[in-house]
């Protein structure tokens, strides 16, 4: 079944004229509709892997295929959500969300209708005409999420999207993310260095070694949602992953 969704085969990458080995022979399948976390120590190369899937960087060896087709560059089927949001400061909330529809040349009226749906989904009603600098971190990330979702991607690539938020907002955004994920049934690949976040969100947690990143272990999270961060099984799984990481 993996053959017709995202497949990563023997992927390797070096930086700096081949001196720095970042990714070492990564093999991974991601299934349709799955929420997968990439977990590993800072600087291990998990962001690089995400950027290669997004088509923003090129691998040196191996390949990435989506539904059997090799990835050669960026595209709306794999939209990336950045840690620092990367909202366009010269566009309003609505303008940011419309971006992906404008480049697809969708008629203004229809685009507005689509955008409005996602504004509702991420709870941003009433902020359509605000500029990014007027929003809080959590709200900015909601805009970034809606802006990605309007593209109707096959996969949502999220690079530590909640890392810049305070703990309380982060917890709230995590449950929001689970809600939005179940509502849209998107496949999500999520880079994080927080074990708790990975366990709370994911179907599977992919644990990486320090650089060069190799897949060290894949942990399945079978805890039913909504998950309780203080339940016994949650805490036990956290401890188990912690051991793997260290």
């Amino acid at each position: 079944m993996s053959e017709n969704f995202l497949t990563i085969v023997n992927l390797s990458k070096w930086y700096g004229n081949g001196n720095i080995h970042v990714l070492d022979n990564i093999n991974l399948d991601v299934f349709r509709g799955e929420f997968v976390s990439l977990l590993g120590p800072s600087g291990c190369g998990k962001t690089t892997l995400l950027r290669i899937i997004a088509g923003l960087e090129k691998q040196d060896k191996g390949e990435v295929r989506l539904k059997g087709e090799q990835i050669v560059g960026p595209g709306q089927d794999r939209v990336m959500v950045f840690q620092d949001y990367a909202l366009f400061p010269w566009r309003t909330v609505l303008g940011n969300i419309l971006f992906g529809l404008e480049v697809r040349k969708i008629k203004k009226e229809e685009a507005l209708k689509i955008a409005q749906n996602y504004i509702k989904l991420v709870n941003l009603e009433g902020f359509e005409n605000s500029y990014p600098h007027e929003l809080s971190g959590g709200m900015k990330q909601r805009v970034a999420l809606a802006r990605a979702l309007v593209c109707d991607p096959e996969i949502l690539l999220m690079d530590e999207p909640l890392a810049a938020l305070d703990a309380q907002t982060r917890n709230m955004m995590q449950s929001e993310l689970v809600r939005i994920w179940s509502a849209t049934k998107k496949t999500i690949i999520y880079v994080t260095h927080s074990i708790e976040e990975a366990v709370y969100l994911s179907d599977r947690v992919i644990i990486f070694t320090p650089r060069p990143a190799k897949v060290k272990k894949i942990v399945k999270v079978d805890i039913p949602r909504p998950r309780d961060r203080f339940s016994r099984e949650f805490v036990e799984l956290r401890a188990k992953i912690y051991e793997q990481l260290h």
Binding site: F82, D84, V103
Partner: peptide
């Protein structure tokens, strides 16, 4: 660079779109 990358990943793969929708407003 993040604005260019955001535009690329959101489907603005044509140089024209990047110029009109990112480079010109950002350099305004």
């Amino acid at each position: 660079k993040k604005y260019i990358e955001a535009a690329l990943t959101l489907g603005a793969t044509k140089t024209k779109d990047i110029f009109i929708k990112v480079i010109i407003p950002a350099s305004m």
